[in-house]
Design a protein around this nucleic acid. Structure first.
Length: 391
DNA sequence: GTTACGC
DNA sequence: GCGTAACAACGCTGG
DNA sequence: CCAGCG
């Protein structure tokens, strides 16, 4: 991996327009910068000015489902604007997104010499693969401002000084009895902004904001602790085999630390409660088949050298390490999506790092985990076939 | 990494 | 002006 | 009910 070149700060800048507007200059005194419409954004505003501009606009989200050419000034806005000025100007809000990078040469992984600039470059390279998993989900950061050997802290509440354009979602926190404003990363700029904050691992919810109670997937976390990694591989393969037998799709990724995550797509058909039950059922079948190496025992000292199958991670507000996220561990390992044929005795967590994964993904072409976001399996059928194990 | 206090 | 604190939390399980 | 765990 090449260290970030150049010194001081570099900047990621992008300018986008919300609704079509290629009209002439803005009234003098304004600092708007007009561009050719390309991307479509949904914005909220308090009111429209006489010129038909939005007052106090705030960015809501991008609308990849709409083309810029489809956008029209809404009639009320047009009428108001027409009444106010001779030549109506369409509603337009320009987003100038600027991410000023800082401390690019600060060493974050001393043993490897990887810098914060390297971390940002990694995310730039995998952003296209990673962003689909971040889309529409509350984001939780673990920040290491001074690298993996420095002090770190979790952060859910987005710092108020973060730029206006960063999408946020407000959720009630039971424990602290207040609202937390979570970041929601929508695009390259948002992703790189949180990374520049010194964030190493990104954690996400299993559900999306619009369907917070209905997870997209069910996760089984195979955590070896003391157990040999080959047992983790065996258990993951066993899990896959069981899923195949009941026609349930399943996917795997390295956790990036020591285990493997197996994900079953749910298509937002189950609640967290039901998802946890499904995970428990699957886990019990695995333990029945591999009683010498797998366990559901929570207490680490009673695991007897076995691999713990954690199914309790399927719950409201519970988090998982996002696919492609980086771990604050030696080697800068990442949580890497796997093809099932790669889940074999040659699999090594340490082989998937910020130095290797961008190349690997270019070679693979396709993200093997990507379908977990969209599949809607026949869960009743699968459940019916699964429960036959318990007769 | 950045801000907000308290001295 | 500078040092320092703050920056999360939830359902389980075993005791 | 409290502490530990992930």
């Amino acid at each position: 991996m090449r260290a970030a070149s150049g010194r001081g700060s570099r900047t990621l800048r992008s300018t986008r327009s919300s609704r079509a507007c290629d009209r002439g200059p803005v009234p003098k005194g304004k600092t708007h910068h007009w561009v050719r419409p390309e991307l479509v954004a949904e914005v909220e505003y308090k009111e429209l000015t006489e010129q038909g501009l939005a007052r106090h606009p705030s960015f809501n989200r991008f609308r990849s489902d709409k083309a810029a050419s489809e956008c029209r000034v809404d009639e009320t806005a047009a009428d108001a604007a027409a009444a106010a000025v001779e030549e109506p100007i369409p509603v337009a809000v320009v987003e100038e997104r600027t991410v000023p990078f800082t401390n690019l040469d600060k060493v974050f992984w001393p043993a490897e010499g990887y810098t914060k600039g390297d971390l940002i470059e990694y995310h730039r390279q995998v952003a296209e693969r990673m962003l689909p998993y971040l889309q529409d989900r509350p984001l939780v950061m673990t920040r290491y401002p001074d690298g993996i050997e420095g002090k770190s802290f979790f952060q859910k509440d987005a710092p108020p000084y973060a730029p206006d354009w960063f999408r946020r979602v407000t959720l009630w926190s039971e424990g602290s009895e207040r609202e937390l404003s979570y970041f929601v990363a929508e695009d390259l700029e948002s992703l790189l902004y949180v990374i520049n904050l010194g964030t190493i691992p990104l954690h996400i919810w299993s559900s999306r904001i619009e369907t917070l109670a209905l997870p997209d997937w069910c996760i089984l976390d195979l955590d070896p602790k003391e157990a040999p990694f080959e047992n983790v591989v065996d258990i993951a393969r066993q899990l896959h085999e069981i899923c195949e037998e009941i026609s349930l799709p399943s996917f795997a990724k390295t956790s990036g630390s020591s285990g493997i995550h197996v994900l079953v797509p749910l298509g937002r058909q189950l609640t967290y409660d039901q998802s946890r039950t499904l995970a428990q059922l699957l886990a019990r079948v695995v333990v029945a088949k591999l009683p010498l190496t797998a366990t559901l025992t929570r207490s680490p000292d009673r695991r007897d050298g076995k691999v713990y199958i954690d199914f309790v991670q399927n719950g409201h507000g519970r988090l998982l390490a996002a696919p492609f996220t980086v771990r604050p561990l030696a080697g800068a390992t990442v949580s890497a999506p796997l093809q099932w044929r790669e889940v074999n005795k040659r699999l090594r967590i340490a082989d998937h790092t910020i130095a290797s994964v961008p190349r690997r993904m270019r070679r693979l072409g396709e993200d093997p985990l990507r379908p977990v976001l969209d599949l809607e399996p026949d869960l009743l059928g699968a459940l019916d076939r699964l429960t036959r194990w318990f007769d």
